[in-house]
Design a protein around this nucleic acid. Structure first.
Lengths: 202, 202, 202, 202
DNA sequence: GATGAATGAGCATTCATTCAT
DNA sequence: CATGAATGAATGCTCATTCAT
């Protein structure tokens, strides 16, 4: 479980530091462009030393992305299993998404940037993403069934559209471009919700 | 014009083939991961031979992206300079966007994927993208002024949102996942337009 | 100091070995013609491994040439700052020059051969050479002023002539062509000193 | 005869142009650094086209250097076969040397710069140089025998010294550094002649 | 636990050379 | 005669990975 990562070391405090460094460096340079030396420097050790904690570079990618995705998934799970209206669920899910970005900025932006490599990076990372996908879709479908959301929209496509709105942030978001996560959240939610809402309810 | 590309050769049919091959390979592997050998193989020549046509790898990137982006920009220019209503302009702009994707799938998906490198790939490619950005934003602003679009939305953020909806396609679109560009276009347009529309007009 | 050479490693014994190997190979093949593989082979490692010690090939050139040149410059400095007569100073300077060749044969012959590249190898190496030039010229000028050297000779040209006599050794000197550095030194000094001497003193 | 150079083409006017271009480019960049493309550009043709005239790059080197060296050798021959005094012969030989530089600047500076490669570039070029060497040495020896030159100087070494004085020009000479060949000739001759002269005659 | 050192495979780029047209 | 196109071998450099100490 957890790939080939030397599991005893995984809990280690030092390993956490390494993963944090990896997240930062991956975010700044991209996974492929980031070198193990970059990461090692960030932690203050030598690249060779990293191999006490990992088996291969890819391990770090997985570790970076694992926890944030699991947390988001858990939260989403809680959200969809309530008796809230689909509209409220969607709103909560979107807020959860932005909150995720706020807390795990580097980690999740790294995740978004590597969806690219899905085929290349075996199942594990990909399936964490698919899970999130599936849950969003579930909300959409429920909303359509309950006539809260427009019936003329394809749930799969609309899920992609919503992910697009939010995940594209990885491209343009910067702490110094003038928008807080709060503001973005409010605006994007209004946009998405009105876009998906069944006209009769507007 | 056109960077350092050996200019006499540019018009050449063979050079076109190489650029097409590059588009394909860049799309499949990403710019950095694609090797000149990959591209050469695709064309059926040796990697060294490519240098008869190019000066450096980056030339290919620019060539791949240049024409599609220029065409899209031209079209957008025509669209925004009509006397159409902002709503119609936006719709046309979005259709133009998808049409671009349909005709220059690999090329534009490559473009989207390298926005990443903005800083790295100096002005030229980046500025072509910025131009498109600016024109979309212009439509949005005009729509708000004319009360067709919601006044509570920030034009800059909403432009990002719309780009997100469409450009994120580069992540999930595949000719065999069951959706035609037509279908996607119709659905995304409905979603975006309703999302941005001033409620009183709905 | 010392360009980009990874500084912690510089003191290292192995790095010395590499520089020595580089000196030998540069001397034999010339800087451009010498490959990093040649140098690596000489040390008994792989070319990639060299990059643990250097950042680029040029580092090696600088390292090869740095110490000998600095030593020669220091010595020259001491020589010109004594109260010796210009004639004695010149003699000492010439002996110092040959001694340099004797101790740092490959290194200084490499230096001579790359003066070629002055423009290419920015200031650092070039300026070490210019320093030596300047100090010789100073002796010549002093000698002319004190009427020990011929007043009809241009100090700049005569410095070139003297450098020619000695530095041209890089072209023909070989340990097995029958002359010791001692012999060469004696002969060249006699030739140069008589050539430059004010006739009235002869 | 004349290496592998396609001999019919050698007399050709166009071939002359190519050789001149090669001389210029070799002088500016050095033999190894000069590319056939550089040379072709200089003539206004394509690098592939050069191969109608040559078999390999080295042919050009030989052609560049051949005529000037032959002329110098001939002149030297005439000089040494007169009944002039050794002193006068030496003076004439030195003037001939500078005249050569003046007329065939690029060509002879190229020659000097490749003495390096003696071993690499088979016998032909090297032997032309050796011939010149031998003739100078002959003058020196004659001068010593006739007591015009110092008897304590080794003829071989002193020949090297003299070559050094003059050939080192290739390193520092530039048409815009303020000295004419005339001036240099006068100065260097005075220096060399006084340096070599038997004291009793001074 | 960590370091220092080395490996080896890979990649962009250069360039002399070839050759059909 | 000359061109355009292609070749292929070589070279500097990068970097994930290994491993003895």
């Amino acid at each position: 479980m957890g790939k080939n990562v030397k599991s005893t070391k995984k809990s280690n405090e030092k390993y956490m530091k390494i993963v944090d460094a990896a997240a930062k460096v991956f975010r700044e340079k991209g996974y492929k462009e980031a070198t193990l030396e970059d990461i090692a420097n960030e932690v203050g050790m030598l690249k060779g030393s990293l191999y006490y904690y990992i088996d291969k570079k890819e391990d770090l990618l997985y570790s970076v992305v694992e926890r944030p995705l699991n947390e988001m998934t858990e939260n989403l799970n809680k959200i969809i299993s309530t008796s809230d209206s689909p509209t409220l669920k969607l709103e909560k899910a979107l807020i959860n998404h932005i909150n995720g970005f706020e807390h795990y900025q580097s980690e999740l932006f790294v995740w978004i940037s590597i969806e690219w490599f899905k085929s290349e990076f075996g199942g594990e990372i990909a399936s964490l993403g698919d899970e999130i996908d599936r849950m969003f879709r579930k909300i959409i479908i429920e909303g359509i069934e309950k006539k809260e959301f427009r019936p003329d929209l394809d749930p799969k496509l609309i899920t992609f559209a919503i992910f697009g709105v939010f995940n594209y942030m990885q491209r343009w978001y910067s702490p110094n471009n003038g928008y807080t996560f709060q503001e973005i959240s409010v605006q994007f939610n209004k946009f998405v919700l009105q876009g998906i809402m069944n006209k009769v309810l507007l």
